Amino acid sequence: MMILSLFPADLKQFLSEVESSGARLCLVGGGSRDFLREGTLSNDLDFEVRGVEISALKSFFKKRGLTYTELPYDIVRLDFKGFDLEFSSPRLENPLTGNKTHHHFEVVLDKELSYDRAFARRDFTLNAIGIEFHFTKDEARVVDPYNGVRDLEEKTLREISDYFFLDSVRFLRLVRFQVKYNFNISDSIKNQMGLFDLSELSIHHFKSEMKKSKNAGAFINEFSKLVRDYQLPVKDVYKIWKNIHFSSDLETIEDLLVSVFLKRPEAAKEVAAFFSLPDKTLKDLTSFYNSYHAVLKLKKEDLIPLCQSEMDAPEVMVVLRDLKNLEDKKEWRKYFPSHLIISWDDWADECVDAELIQVTPAPLRSYLRFYQTMKRVIQ
């Protein structure tokens, strides 16, 4: 199978040694999905391990002096030459009655659990595809108990069972896969969408899935649309998105913040609070915006007399402080056109003579660059 040729020799050798310890490895989740979809080998590889307990793998790693991280449900993660490898035991997840959180189940680990029973806990059929390896024989085969390959080819998001609707984070994954990959939602999910209860949905998971979508604006738009269309229960904190529609090309939290700030400055505080942004973030954006518009209003006839004044004249310093502020908070420039009478393009390569710096009072030295630029551009 072609995927075997994508493994670097040292990684293949390492996994062969893991296999020789008695482990049978099956690649699951995004690693198998992305190979079947794109023909590539991910740097993030998750293996279900049959044949041995995870404790045996820990001992194997320790003997080889490998450092690993232990995660809940007896999952082990380690870095191997740039590959993020995760090893877990097949498991059953038994729902806990009345629990609406992401951890709404109790786990039963079983190193010999069949693929169909182990994969039944997964979200979409296209995420319930495995690739079973026999590295020592240089063999691999696709394991597909729920016809996930078909749905992957048809770009359809289909649930494996009603268990899908018990986890509010899976609602977020539904949104992410639709936005990131332009997958379609199956009629079976649409018909049961109302089963989702988002009343305990954490902001942590919301932000995580939004970032993975690579398109924050489209993610929030689709989240809000589905919540509205299916009248799903949500925490009050999510209701801030009810009356906000974002451009579909907004990728980051900062993109979202600026978009809201420019339309409804008062709502930007709610956005900043939702994402737990430092107070300084919105203050800096506001400060940059104010300086930008102050410079935007300047006309050449207003600046000519300033160029003939001393640098420390009050009316000159007002302009210089705004110019310096545009430099100090340069991270916000990308959101604003540089069509200013004096802009950051003008002072980008401005050099100030060392002797001039020495004879200028210390409090004024940081403004020399901008004063010099103003005089050059205006005169």
Rank of each mutant, 00 (worst) to 15 (best):
L41V: 07
K100S: 09
K324E: 10
L27S: 03
K334C: 02
D197H: 11
S309W: 05
Q192M: 03
L36R: 05
D229H: 13
K207T: 15
F133Y: 15
R365W: 09
S202H: 03
V295E: 05
G98A: 14
L41A: 01
Q231A: 12
K269V: 12
R50Y: 00
P314D: 12
G51N: 14
E106S: 14
Y115A: 06
K214H: 13
L277D: 04
T69M: 12
F164A: 12
A128M: 05
S276G: 06
S59H: 12
A118N: 13
I3V: 15
R173L: 03
Q231Y: 11
L36H: 10
A348Q: 13
L4E: 08
F164W: 02
K280E: 13
L27V: 05
G29W: 00
K100C: 04
G217Y: 13
H104Y: 14
W332H: 11
S21D: 10
R173V: 10
V258Q: 08
V49S: 09
L71K: 14
E254N: 13
E266A: 15
A23G: 01
F219R: 02
W344P: 00
E315F: 01
V107F: 10
L232A: 08
E350N: 04
L152P: 07
K155N: 12
E112H: 05
T252R: 10
D255T: 04
K300T: 07
V377T: 15
R321A: 02
H245D: 04
A120F: 14
I75K: 12
L323N: 02
H204K: 13
R365A: 08
N215V: 11
S188I: 14
S5D: 15
D167S: 10
R173C: 06
W344C: 01
N290C: 06
S168A: 15
H102P: 01
F165P: 01
S247H: 11
S259V: 00
R24Q: 05
L11T: 02
P361V: 06
